[in-house]
Amino acid sequence: MGCFHSTASRQFPGYEDPVFLASQTAFSVSEVEALFELYKSISSSVIDDGLISKEEFQLALFKNKKKENLFANRVFDLFDVKHKGVVDFGDFVRTLNFFHPNASQEDKIDFTFRLYDLDGTGFIERQEVRQMLIAILCESELKLADETIEVILDKTFQEADVNQDGKIDRSEWQQFVSRNPSLLKIMTLPYLRDITTTFPSFVFHSEVDEMAT
């Protein structure tokens, strides 16, 4: 694929060599290049600066930049590995790697723990879960009485919070997810297996030799 040499991609802030990114992730070099096509389209949707802002991320997720969503914000924060308020290409590929069908279950469990540990204390606390439940109810327009929310929280913490200290630690989370594997469904994106067919135009911008793919 060395026919179309271009240095355009190297001018993207945070651009990293696809061969290097492939060596660190479950993606092949061609898949990293196909992801770059997706990345370019998201990062230029509002401001064409080669970086993904929260607004651009939400626009790609909801097709509507005005939609505020607690969970989308959390996911964006986890993509923003360097805490710069924006996601660069390396962040994008490394974080999507957690969602790869071949990523380890351990990594997926760890990602969900960080996702739900809203304030980053190292525990998923009851008030955080309550906050997330209220957010999901607002999002879905489903109405549940406060007492019903507390019943759901009681039931969840009885099962997950093994030492009953009112918060879920990493080890309790690991055990809870093992007993409820459907909770990891959000962590696998089958799309990532077909990324090169979804974004075939990567072949026109490839900067690596076919041997490397």
Binding site: L61, F62, A72, F99, T156, N180, L183, K185, Y191, I195
Partner: peptide
């Protein structure tokens, strides 16, 4: 939220139905 009765679900099953956690839409053109 889900086809199941929400009261029978644990909190995280409910939470994981959020659109904000469905990254599949990033890949829809």
């Amino acid at each position: 939220v889900a086809s199941q009765n929400p009261v029978t679900m644990n909190a995280f099953e409910l939470i994981s139905t959020s659109q904000g956690l469905n990254l599949g839409t990033l890949f829809e053109k």
